[in-house]
Design a protein around this nucleic acid. Structure first.
Lengths: 344, 344
DNA sequence: TTGTACGCGTTATCAA
DNA sequence: TTGATAACGCGTACAA
């Protein structure tokens, strides 16, 4: 049933040469007679020979492999990053292996996943997690080039590529201010829940305040498991009677808010303006029309790979912190409060 | 900057024993004095020693690694599968490495990705692609246990775990018939585009016909790149004047249809009933309320891993073809045609 | 209980 | 242009 896998010795025997010649022929090294080269390639193909990357890694001290850690592959956000990593790594001659914390997002699980990557002797680490504390990554970063992708990080011993959270939060806040909102509710998160979502919501609050907007902060942790409790949150905002806009920490949360409105027969921006954050498919769908801030995940992925590969190749001196700009997605869920005021 | 990675020799030297003792101590093998065991573990921890999985694989002839090929990691559908693979593999004591065809979905790229997996000496293959022909997988399946996850496959030399496409297509068709639709448009796909989507839409058409429903088949390939051309498609359906429901091959297509309706100021089910397929977050959102057929991706992932791991362990004789049942998600985009007929 | 020695599949060095 | 041979880091019989 399961054939034994052919080795370099099988190819050598078939071609009537030593394994050294086979190695050189297949790796494109010079110093192989054209005739033998053709013969070796032929035999290798016939046998379906595929070199053992483990053995190659042992001997050559290089695996040409990048290790990617993602918190939750089921989220489109990380899915897009993964795709970008894979693509750019391939373009740069590297392979990607990924590991996740298998379901439960416990920190010990995440550490274990990182160790798996190390055991594979990846040449660099790309870490994608909004929650994993940098102190857990640092011990690995001492061992190999490491980049944190998708979230800001100041530690000098580690690179990071991310979409400027302050700029995004401010951009969305300015958008609402421009629309005329004077009293806005912001769903806030603590850094332990999500460093990125905490940063952007903090930026929203600050920008609104400095624009003389009355801000109601709503800590989301109080609202229990994931997206539950959004109902009561929305109800409270509605009951206030004066809040005209609600800023969510992500598109996913925004959808939950829109659902809660819908359950009450209400809608955005008619009864309440709503904004999200991330702007990635499938949430950026025209159908939903969420007013959001788009993070250029493809670019972030590309730059992350470039950063660590440059470090591996010695083309880059040290670590870098790269902030890329996001973009406002106007959408239809945020409008001018005046337009609908009369109807309330 | 980048420390050299400690090997088993470093630990042995630190503990004042031979590497054999270290190997046994760290692998939990019997025959190590309690005192030395503690000492070795301590030194290993101090050094941050992580065994080289490549070397282990060489020596032990086992990598405890499963290779997963996914067509497009950015799609939530595959994201959910990936998560399930990772979780169950971990529970069974295996590691997962994934590979994709890096952007362009050319068949040569996909073959190359599979070879990457083979070069890593994964012990089994899990293939997730709605398009990759089985003939491209067969040569690899001869080498190791292989399962095709998420799509039906009849070839006896390969396992498959999938959600019954016929049952799903029929279930949705029956739902529409039950609602009273007598003239339905079905967006069809050819097997070369997607084997699964082709199968389910075929089932829809057949079931509708055998229920004496008038069916209009709309080949989607005619409508160009991805979701473009949906506008003209929807327009044509609307122009027919008699079609009361449109069945899409996936939730993603359904969203495109709903968007096209929206652009015309129309909506479902008011002006046209619409159904999707897959029923996976974030498309199953209450907000959209798409009438769909849910595929139990978690279960498919779990069973896929179990299948190949059982084969590896010799606990399973041969290949199996496992069909799991999906589930109707009623939603709000499909209604009774009578309700709105007067308004048209 | 511990250590020695061999082999795993490659690459790389050095003679031939 | 080729072919031995030594590493690479680890597991594992086998000997001590």
């Amino acid at each position: 049933m399961t054939d034994s896998v052919p080795t370099i010795y099988d190819v050598a025997a078939g071609a009537g040469v030593s394994k050294s010649v086979v190695s050189r022929a297949l790796s494109g090294a010079p110093g192989v007679a054209p005739a033998t080269l053709a013969r070796v390639k032929q035999i290798a193909a016939d046998l379906g020979y595929v070199a053992n990357a483990n053995a190659q890694g042992m001997s050559a001290h290089r695996t040409h492999t990048l290790g990617v850690f993602v918190r939750d592959a089921a989220t489109p956000f990380y899915g897009h990053l993964l795709t970008a990593f894979q693509e750019q790594a391939s373009a740069r001659g590297y392979r990607v292996v990924t590991a996740t914390g298998s379901g439960s997002f416990s920190l010990v699980e995440e550490r274990r996943a990182l160790e798996t990557l190390v055991s594979l002797r990846v040449e660099a680490l790309i870490v994608c997690s909004g929650a994993l504390p940098v102190t857990d990554v640092l011990p690995f970063a001492r061992r190999m080039p490491t980049v944190i992708a998708g979230r800001p990080e100041r530690d000098a011993s580690i690179s990071s590529v991310y979409c400027d959270e302050s700029g995004g939060g401010q951009g969305l806040a300015d958008h609402l201010v421009g629309l005329g909102h004077r009293r806005v509710a912001v769903m806030t998160l603590s850094p332990t829940s999500s460093l990125t979502q905490a940063a952007r919501t903090r930026a929203m609050v600050q920008r609104l305040r400095s624009s003389h907007v009355d801000v109601a902060e709503i800590p989301c942790e109080d609202f229990g498991g994931e997206l539950d409790g959004v109902d009561s949150l929305v109800q409270a905002v509605l009951d206030s009677g004066s809040v005209t806009a609600l800023m969510a920490p992500s598109d996913s949360w925004a959808v939950a808010v829109l659902e809660a409105l819908q359950r009450r027969g209400l809608s955005a921006p008619h009864d309440l303006s709503v904004t999200g954050y991330d702007g990635v498919t499938p949430f950026l769908s025209e159908l939903l029309g969420i007013t959001s801030w788009r993070q250029p995940l493809g670019l972030i992925g590309t730059l992350s790979v470039d950063d660590v590969v440059d470090q591996i190749d010695g083309r880059s001196a040290g670590t870098r912190h790269l902030a890329v700009d996001g973009e406002l997605l106007p959408g239809r869920t945020a409008g001018s409060p005046g337009e609908f005021a009369a109807l309330r």
